[in-house]
Amino acid sequence: MLFALPMSNKAIIDIRALTKVYNLGQVKVPALNGVNIEVLEGSYVALMGPSGSGKSTLLNILGCLDRPTGGVYRLGGEDVSAMSDRQLSQIRGQRIGFIFQSYNLIPQLNVVENIHVPLFYQGRDIRSCYDHCAGLALKVGLRGRLDHRPMQLSGGQQQRVAVARSLANNPLMVLADEPTGNLDSTTGEEILALLDELHADGRTIIIVTHDPKVALRAERVIHLMDGLVDRVEHHERSMVAAANGAKGRAS
């Protein structure tokens, strides 16, 4: 594969007693109440739980989009909680890929330009990395659509662009918040297959979902409840391989 990463058993994510309280003036809304999670590099984790249990909140903190109120978050050994806005931007730009439920492509840019956005903020000219971006677009199955605008694409195609974009800067970790939430089951399957490929390449994947079938693809499912880890399910590697449709890429 294009971007195969070495597998290791290092913890990429290590959070201890993580809390998040939304401060709405008078009212304080606790969203996370002391979460402890360790995620190994190259693993595939699903976050599940009822609505309002704090899945998105946790994912945003893991993605360095938001800061915890308390506790410690180590990303690849570095304490992220104390970092400046600029440093967090840099981490997001270099080490994390995001996939959103509502695609979030930039309407005035075409497919390749959208994929290029993370690289743009790393100071890379589109001419120098056009082939790389176009290659990603082809990889997610967007042949013949390279110069289309998001408006001219179907939801599934837009989410493919988003997957390609999340890969542009060759991140260690891809975070997806209900990536199939807006798609029909077949299209959803296709997107999940793409994520499986990323995982097979050795990338860490964390996905938030409501769908148990989706969660079945992950090696580990973390169930949240009222801002706390309720329980953790481990899936056998073989099960994962089976869910992947026996693609035989798990190693």
């Binding site: 993605g63 989009l65 806005d85 600029r86 931007s89 840099q90 997001r92 730009g93 270099q94 995001f98 959103f100 979030n104 492509l105 930039i106 309407p107 956005v117 993370p118 903020y121 790393q122 974009r165 800067n169």
Partner: peptide
């Protein structure tokens, strides 16, 4: 606003 959020998520600093 949303575009700004996306750009920030993808690594844009405030200065950008």
């Amino acid at each position: 606003t949303r575009e700004i959020g996306v750009r920030r998520a993808l690594g844009a600093t405030r200065g950008d």
